[in-house]
Design a protein around this nucleic acid. Structure first.
Length: 589
DNA sequence: CTAGGGTTAG
């Protein structure tokens, strides 16, 4: 391998020698690079060097830097750069992009800082690289500063710069700002459309993502590529829209993108989230070398539908195939919590502890859950999740004492405050302490804390039906619902579910006054039901609060038996937490 | 000679 410093020093001090050096030695090395690294344009061509070597030192060195970067030798590249007497904007941009690609976007930003101390002016390449760095870091503050410079230097209409800006704002959860850029663009291409669709999709705006996706297809400027299709499929997944998901799957196949592993992974996840684990499996089995991502989707999907054995089998299969599970995989297989660090070297963090608290809490081991929550040091951002989880478990098991403590911790975190109030109030109500329940409600009213009502929806044929929690007023068949529930209870008893409580529990607190919570088994798993008629007169039941629980699955199967029809159930109490920010939406409890 | 989009969780 040639020594860059040698090339450099020769080029600086012995310019005449440079010619012969490159002619003889470097030509040989070019051949080597080519052969060993399969990077056709990784090295400067002989012609480039000859043409510019004597007169343009910067150009030559840039070519060498570029070669080193393509060979992932960033240290060599940086060294060359440091030795340059006149690095230009290309030299700077090259190095910044190299660091971003290498996973060190912070260094790229530092380099820009250094660059600002020189007379070299940034160009559109520099900006798109820097914006990309901010996007990866989800560093909104710096992103905005660079955006300002984009305006100052007159690159606001550059297509690539705008696409990066959309992406950056999207990754920082600033949908409005991303949309502003998109709306003001004069020229757009597939990438800019994809950036916008992805921004919607990743920020809980699946409807807008699908709307924009449809619009793109409607104007027929171009066919969607695998990037765009991925985001569209993800949007369907987040909405639980099986119908749209199937249509998008059709588009994927027609456009020949079904061989893309990433698209296939998105499809696997979409079907799992829409409740069709069978379809997930079909798509999954077509992936020749599935990565940890589709495996995780399958494992989590199976676990959510109570198919614990399948979930664990998939996990075992994954491990057997030497695919390394990551921290997300473990969220789906918490049973293996203890082997996380020992066997796989993944340190459990706040998210995993929250899941354990959830698991202990659900089965009624509240005190252990409480102890664990207390012992874990998590960042303040994760506090709401951790203590909110404990709070809902306390409500489930009527532990007013822990509920008070947990809700205080949630309120202190300043996130999900309204939900904490409601849950605490409901805990009081369930314990028969109506006075405190009402006091809390009045307190909320007085201080203007408002809780968004939770909702569920179900997709049947081409229509989506929406229900609000507890709102059975539009349900014309309340009586049928009740008799159906009785039947369910009876059948569950037949299958050996002892300790089934009969009847309905009314939680009488204002908005949720009419919410009926049905205790279906000894662990007081509360399932709220909605009911509707399909055009064909078939009864469909919607279950709220479906969780990872064997009994849920049992109930689910029973309902399937009764309605004898494929249907989709969505877990509506979902909690969004976006990749790069602390933005939350949806209804956690 | 330099730049931009995608998949897994809670």
């Amino acid at each position: 391998m040639m020594k860059p410093n040698l090339v450099k020093s020769l080029s600086r001090h012995h310019k005449l020698t440079l010619f012969s050096f490159h002619t003889n030695t470097n030509a040989h090395n070019i051949g080597k690079f080519h052969t060993f690294n399969h990077l056709p344009s990784a090295t400067p061509t002989h012609a480039n060097v000859v043409k510019s070597g004597l007169s343009n030192d910067t150009f030559t060195t840039n070519n060498l830097i570029n070669s080193y970067l393509k060979l992932l030798k960033i240290d060599h590249a940086h060294k060359l750069f440091d030795e340059m007497s006149h690095p230009n904007v290309v030299s700077w941009s090259l190095l910044m992009a190299g660091y971003v690609r290498q996973g060190q976007p912070n260094i790229a930003l530092c380099l820009f800082h250094q660059m600002q101390g020189t007379l070299v002016m940034p160009n559109e390449f520099t900006f798109s690289t820097l914006i990309n760095a901010c996007s990866i870091l989800a560093n909104l503050e710096t992103g905005r500063r660079i955006h300002a410079l984009v305006e100052v230097f007159g690159y606001r209409s550059d297509l690539v710069v705008c696409s990066s800006l959309i992406d950056m704002y999207g990754k920082c959860n600033r949908v409005d700002e991303a949309q502003m850029i998109f709306d003001f663009m004069w020229v757009r291409n597939v990438v800019s459309w994809t950036s916008m669709i992805t921004t919607y999709s990743q920020n809980g705006q699946g409807h807008l993502a699908l709307q924009l996706f449809r619009e793109f297809n409607h104007i027929r400027m171009n066919k969607p590529n695998h990037f765009m299709l991925c985001s569209a499929v993800t949007a369907c997944a987040s909405l639980g829209r099986l119908g749209s998901g199937k249509i998008t799957h059709g588009v994927v196949i027609r456009l020949g993108h079904d061989a893309s592993d990433v698209v296939a992974s998105a499809l696997v996840d979409m079907y799992a989230k829409c409740g069709c684990v069978t379809y997930s499996d079909k798509v999954f089995r077509r992936i020749v070398n599935p990565s940890v991502v589709p495996y995780t989707s399958m494992i989590v999907g199976a676990a959510k539908y109570g198919l614990g054995t399948l979930s664990l089998r998939l996990f075992q299969e994954m491990v057997d195939r030497r695919i390394k599970p990551n921290s997300i995989t473990f969220v789906g297989v918490l049973h293996l919590f203890n082997s996380m660090n020992e066997k796989y070297g993944v340190m459990p963090d706040a998210r995993h502890y929250t899941c354990i608290v959830d698991m202990l809490g659900r089965v009624g081991r509240i005190d252990e859950a409480y102890q664990l929550a207390q012992s874990v040091q998590v960042g303040s951002e994760d506090d709401a999740l951790l203590w909110g989880t404990l709070l809902s478990a306390s409500r489930l098991h009527g532990r007013v004492d822990i509920a008070i403590e947990a809700s205080n911790r949630v309120i202190e975190s300043n996130q999900q405050v309204a939900a904490a109030y409601v849950t605490l109030s409901n805990t009081y109500a369930l314990a028969g302490d109506w006075e405190n329940a009402h006091n809390l409600r009045s307190e909320m009213k007085r201080t203007g804390v408002y809780k968004e009502p939770g909702s569920s929806w179900i997709e049947i044929k081409d229509s989506t039906y929406l229900f609000h929690a507890g709102d059975l007023s539009k349900c014309s068949q309340k009586r049928e619902l009740l008799s159906l529930l009785r039947e369910l209870e009876g059948r569950m008893k037949e299958r050996g579910h002892v300790g089934v409580t009969t009847g309905l529990v009314f939680v009488d607190v204002e908005e949720e006054a009419k919410e009926e919570i049905v205790s279906l088994h000894s662990e007081k798993l509360a399932l709220a039901f909605g009911l509707l008629n399909t055009p064909k007169g078939i009864t469909i039941i919607i279950m709220k609060n479906l969780r990872m629980c064997r009994d849920c699955h049992e109930a689910f199967k029973l309902i399937s038996d009764i309605v004898e029809r494929e249907f989709v159930v969505r877990d509506v109490n979902r909690f969004h937490h976006f990749k790069n920010g602390s933005c939350t939406c949806g209804d956690f409890w």
